[in-house]
Design a protein around this nucleic acid. Sequence first.
DNA 1: CGCCAGGCCTGCACGC
DNA 2: TGCGTGCAGGCCTGGC
Length: 270
Amino acid sequence: MPELPEVETTLRGLAPHLTGQRIAGVAIRHPQLRWPIPRNLPKLLCGQTIRSIRRRAKYLFIECGNGTLILHLGMSGSLRILPADTLAEKHDHFDLLLAKGMLLRLRDPRRFGAVLWHEGDPAQHPLLARLGVEPLEKEFDAAYLHRATRKRSAAVKLVIMDSHVVVGVGNIYANEALFRAGIPPQLAANRLSLARCAQLVQTVRETLSEAIQMGGSSLRDYVDSNGNPGYFQQHYWVYGRAGEPCRVCGTLIKQIRQGQRSSFYCPCCQ
DNA sequence: CGCCAGGCCTGCACGC
DNA sequence: TGCGTGCAGGCCTGGC
């Protein structure tokens, strides 16, 4: 279920446990994820020291001296730090055993996640090289979004969810950001004025930042035990609220289908 | 039982 | 023609 805020929250929770740690072992229980887990990972990783952990889009980078382990949580993945003797359960597919008696465990029931290896700059991995800008970085501004949408007649919601334009905007936050910006999800992207691009950039940033802050409050739960992702607790303006009254004007929230996923919006406010 | 949710890559079809 | 773009399919499990 992770959207970008959950990945960022996971990163922040893991970093102090992983940075500087030596890798003592690797367990691969179920290599069939989105792509197969490389079989030579144990050979590559054992004895290496983790230099840093970083994020690009929804990918996590665990950087070692000889390359980078790239993790993606797909739709149902989670990462935890656990005592090294914790028994693996049904969907625990991958472990990194750390020298000091702990382990990093990937659980992913739906197996849309990924564990990849890349030598050299991980941002240049074929899957990542052509990604768009980070939504919380400066490059994502009104001028950028305006430029990026000029030739796109597709609906604005599909375009802001296109990771070649801007990364990390999943279905939930796309719906929420469009509501906050007062933009209907069906609007053709190339019909957005510069002013509306500015508005949308701001609401995308706000929506994600607020979710990261909320994720932060349940950080310990998320990493150390069975806590829910932070966003689960949030109350949404439109997401999942079809048929319920708009929190602003009372008009009933509509649900439509775009790109084979659900969109929710207020026909009056947007 | 069938449907839906979620991320996102791949491949096909279309139009300029 | 070739390119960019738009769309559908596929991967998988659990919950309703």
